[in-house]
Amino acid sequence: MTPHPTGALLSRYARGADGVDEATVWALEAHLECCAACRAALAGAVDPATVALLDEVAVRIGAGVAAGPGPARPRRLRRTGVAARTVRWLAAAAVTVLAAVACEKSFASMPSLVLLVAPMAPLLPVAAVWSRHTDPAWELVATGARAGLWLLLRRTLAVLLAVTPVLAVAGWQTGHAPARWLLPCLAFTAGSLALGAAIGVDRAAVALALGWSAAVVLPSLAGQRLPGVLDSAAWPLWTGVLAVCVAVLLARGAGRRAGPGRP
């Protein structure tokens, strides 16, 4: 700390620093910032008119603060507001899954619709959280420092946290083991993100959903039997697919910089 200033210097400073050179004023102010005793001495050196003025200012500011609006309350759920845009997509996914449960319970002879629909359930909401068409501020998001893989994973995780409980209820109601619906669901989500690095997440998710519907859902509904890939014994396959997709995602993600909807 710099040495304490003399009383003469303090009183000249209190009168408006007349005749004191700038370097001395800087040194004095730097000292005053961290020395309570000298601040008290300065307060004593100020002339009475200034003291009265300062008191009046303090009173008025106090009155203004008391009469004015309160401080803005921070909202913790602010950022989930971003996800609010995707509520209708999440609702659509939930309705589809619940309709599949109803169908499966009503028509026992049909192949399990819950298992057929589960891989596709998170795809539409995932497409919606990372698409230029559904995110009005995509251009701003894309220029944010946070844009990129981690923001995408964050939003995807939010979708999974919303969709998985619905699937869990569906699985519990229809008596399917979690591995049979959860693993395909996760594998397809990871697949859409990994494929998204090349063609855009929204397009990848829609392509995967359409591909699954055409290649598996329609044939199994027509043939009235569940394909082998949805058996309980197929879990190593799904785990493998999941692992490969996550590896691809992380490997490609290191240099990833894009915002919504861009490869």
Partner: peptide
Amino acid sequence: EFVEYMAWLKE
């Protein structure tokens, strides 16, 4: 909220 969200995006 919007400006706060953008500030958050800008790290």
